[in-house]
């Protein structure tokens, strides 16, 4: 009988991705490009929020958008038509998230020398994208009012990794049992350093605050 041999590995499955992500961040820093990873559940209003925000900032910063979806290019087409901002569509080939290598491959299609800010719209999902560092400078997520103020309790990792939480669809708050203060407490319990901005992509409320946050971040990244 063949001899059985055990080879010890003791290595995190995410270690390679974290290294790739760190390398990508350094490269982006040297090129003066700020990458924001925007996550959320499907239907929270990521694309509508982006359209509003892009129209607010496109004259102030050179911005591009990468759309990541399992299939279709509806979001990329919509953003391009509504804002004129350079937009590319990534397909994850059935995967529920983007990792640093996929993000890098996507960035290869963006002319980075003409760009200061890239917004990555990740796959709509509150679980998997939180596990994988994309190489972005910051993680942001959108939680919309109809989803409920308890989501930070149910999807702890997503809220732990996000530096910015946008609470969207505040215009429909009167119709839902959504307690904004309780929601903020739930978010801060997961991440005491999180910045929280209530917005309504429909009415435009809070979009200027998000735009200011973004422009300030890009400015500080360049320094």
């Amino acid at each position: 009988m063949d001899q059985v041999k055990v080879i010890e590995i003791k290595k995190s499955v995410f270690a390679d991705n974290e290294q790739d992500a760190e390398n990508l961040r350094k490269e982006l820093k040297s090129k003066g490009v700020y990458l924001l990873n925007l996550m959320s559940a499907p239907g929270s209003g990521k694309t509508t929020t982006l359209v509003k925000t892009l129209n607010h900032i496109k004259d102030k910063v050179r911005v591009a958008v990468m759309e990541a979806d399992i299939d279709s290019d509806v979001d990329a087409v919509r953003i391009k038509l509504a804002t004129g901002v350079p937009t590319i569509q990534l397909h994850t080939g059935g995967m529920c998230h983007l990792d640093a290598e996929m993000t890098r491959q996507g960035l290869d299609n963006v002319t980075l020398k003409d760009i200061n800010l890239v917004i990555l719209e990740n796959v709509g999902n509150l679980v998997c994208p939180a596990e994988f560092d994309t190489g972005a400078v910051r993680n942001a997520m959108i939680l919309s009012v109809p989803e409920g103020d308890d989501k930070p309790l149910k999807y702890p990792l997503m809220f732990t990794v996000c530096d910015l939480v946008l609470i969207n669809k505040t215009d429909v708050m009167p119709y839902f049992d959504f307690d904004l203060e309780r929601c903020k407490q739930n978010i801060l319990m997961r991440n005491p350093k999180a910045t929280i901005i209530p917005i309504s992509a429909k009415t435009g409320e809070g979009i200027d605050a998000f735009a200011d946050w973004l422009l300030n971040e890009v400015q500080n990244w360049k320094l």
Partner: peptide
């Protein structure tokens, strides 16, 4: 739901270790 992606990472790592150790089949 991200288990498949994780499996692809594991396969990549195991392949690398197998190559370094001149192993042609892994049983567990």
């Amino acid at each position: 739901m991200h288990e498949l992606g994780i499996v692809f990472y594991i396969i990549k790592d195991v392949k690398q270790v197998a190559e370094e150790n001149h192993v042609d089949h892994v049983s567990t």
